[in-house]
Computed example of a mutant assay.
Amino acid sequence: MKIVVLSDTHGDAAIIPAVIKSHPDADYYFHCGDSELTYDAAHIKDCKRVRGNCDHDIRYPLEEVVEVDGKTVFMTHGNLFNVKTTLTPIAMRAEEVGADIVLFGHSHVLGAELVNGTLFLNPGSLKSPRGRNEKSYAVIETTADGYAIEFLDEQHQRITAITL
C-alpha cells in the first residue's frame, strides 16, 4: 500500500495536484489540513481531507478515520491535540479509534515515529517549513516488517527516508 500525505499548503492550490500527478501509483492521498481551499475545490478533491485552524470551510471534518488495506488511519490537523508540545493527546485519541497510522500537521515540522506499533507521521509543510529549509510531504509504503517512509520536497526529490 502506498499513501501520499500532505499538509499545510496554505493557499498553494497548484502544489496539491502536482504532488498527486507525481505519484499516480499511490493508493490514497491524505491532506492534513490548512489547505485554505474550499472543501469542494477541484485541486483537493482526490484527497481525504480535514480542517485545519486556517481552513474556514466548515464542511471539512475535524477528523477522519479510514480503513485502508487492513490498517486504520486516523487523520486530524493537530491543533486540537496540542501537537506542537506533546503527542500524548493525539496518542490517546489514536488508541480510542484503534489507529495503526496517525497523520497530522499543524507544526510544519516533518517527522515520523513508531510508538507501541502505531505510526505517527507529520509530513511537514509544502508552504512554510519549520525546523529545516525544505518544503515537504511524505510517502508511506507498507512493508512486510513495517513502513518505508520518504519525505520529499516540492520538486519531488528525496529529503530523507526512514524505515520503521
Rank of each mutant, 00 (worst) to 15 (best):
A18P: 05
D25A: 15
E113F: 01
H23Y: 13
K127A: 14
L110W: 05
R59W: 02
H56D: 06
F120W: 13
F120L: 15
D12M: 05
A26E: 08
A42Q: 12
R130D: 06
I58V: 09
F151T: 02
G146W: 06
H56S: 06
G146L: 11
I16D: 06
F74P: 02
T88P: 00
I101Y: 01
P61N: 04
D25N: 11
H23A: 09
R49G: 14
K2W: 03
I140E: 04
N79D: 14
F151N: 11
I3K: 03
T118I: 15
T163Q: 15
D8I: 00
M1K: 09
A144Q: 13
A14D: 15
A144L: 10
K71W: 02
E67A: 11
N122C: 11
H31R: 04
A18H: 10
D153F: 04
F81V: 08
V68M: 08
D69Y: 04
D153G: 01
K71G: 01
R49F: 02
I3T: 09
G78A: 13
Y39V: 10
I149T: 03
L119C: 01
P123A: 07
G117M: 05
R51E: 08
L119G: 01
H10E: 10
P123F: 03
R132E: 12
Y137R: 15
V97F: 02
F81T: 09
K48E: 09
Y39M: 09
I15S: 06
S35F: 00
M75W: 00
G33P: 06
E64L: 07
S7N: 08
T76C: 13
I159T: 10
D8H: 14
A112N: 11
T163E: 14
V68G: 00
L119T: 03
R130T: 02
N133P: 11
V139S: 03
A18M: 12
K84P: 03
K48D: 08
V4C: 10
V50I: 07
P24F: 06
D8P: 04
G111T: 02
M92K: 15
K127D: 14
A99M: 04
T38R: 14
T86K: 03
E95D: 11
H23L: 05
E134T: 00
E96Y: 01
H108F: 05
P61E: 11
Y147A: 04
D27F: 09
A144F: 05
S107C: 03
E63C: 06
K48H: 11
S107M: 13
A148Y: 15
E63R: 00
T9W: 08
K135T: 11
E154G: 03
G11T: 04
K84D: 10
Q157F: 02
Y137D: 01
E113V: 13
I90T: 10
V4D: 10
I140K: 02
E150V: 10
K127Q: 14
D40C: 04
K45T: 12
C32W: 00
R51L: 10
Y39S: 12
I44N: 12
F81A: 00
D69Q: 14
E134N: 10
D55A: 02
T9Y: 07
V5N: 08
D8S: 05
T88K: 13
Y28L: 14
S128K: 15
I44D: 07
H23Q: 14
I20P: 01
E36H: 06
G124N: 09
H77A: 05
F81N: 05
V50F: 00
E96D: 11
A99N: 09
E150T: 14
K48T: 14
E154L: 13
R93K: 15
P123T: 05
A138S: 07
E95R: 12
F81K: 06
